[in-house]
């Protein structure tokens, strides 16, 4: 029996197309302009982790299903696995390495205080997502936070502690 090929390729008998050329692009990451050389198919996530050695941003699924790769682009949270690096020139990209002005961001400290993680792999994404979510201004209650943080999976099951941490920061912000 002949099985189906692994990838359905309509141009099955043709030679593979030549790869798109590499491009020099400038990404503004954590307040610094960084020049990297990438092909257009490189995701922002892989550019951050592989080319810029900013490995704090995590790859959990590469499909936009887990949220581990969440970063802030112009203050908005996005899944960095679902966008290409070449699409992000001219934008302000903030990763976990750049969220604190000095020392620790209150969200980072709250995550430690509430033990809002175990293995730590989803944590940078959770923290960036939480900061982005509060920026959005739609979270008013604990239930809102739960709903709006549901794009960030945590297999260790730290959800209740994550919400506790976010609520603490949110309430402190509200009192300012």
């Amino acid at each position: 029996m002949k099985s189906e090929p692994q990838v359905i390729n309509n141009e099955h008998d043709k030679l593979p197309a030549a790869l798109a050329p590499e491009l020099d692009i400038v990404l503004r990451v954590n307040g610094h302009d960084r020049t990297i050389t990438v092909r257009p198919w490189v995701t922002l996530l892989d550019a951050l982790r592989g080319r810029l050695d900013l490995t704090g941003t995590k790859k959990g699924c590469d499909h936009g299903q887990c949220g581990a790769c969440t970063v802030l682009v112009n203050g908005k949270r996005i899944n960095s696995c679902l966008t290409l690096a070449v699409m992000q020139t001219g934008n302000d990209i903030t990763t976990i390495e750049g969220i604190a002005q000095d020392g620790m961001h209150p969200m980072q400290q709250a995550f430690i205080d509430h033990d809002a993680f175990q293995c730590g792999y989803c944590t940078p994404g959770q923290i960036c997502s939480a900061i982005g979510m509060l920026n959005e201004g739609h979270a008013h209650t604990r239930g809102d936070v739960q709903e709006l943080m549901s794009g960030n999976l945590c297999r260790c099951g730290a959800y209740t502690n994550i919400v506790d941490a976010i609520m603490e920061v949110k309430e402190a912000q509200g009192n300012e």
């Binding site: 900013l54 490995t55 704090g56 941003t57 990763t95 976990i96 390495e97 604190a100 620790m104 980072q108 400290q109 995550f111 430690i112 205080d113 033990d115 993680f117 730590g120 944590t123 940078p124 923290i127």
Partner: peptide, 12 residues
Amino acid sequence: SRVDGPAKVTGT
């Protein structure tokens, strides 16, 4: 608090 907490929340 977890002693490895700072490394985990800062991405290091």
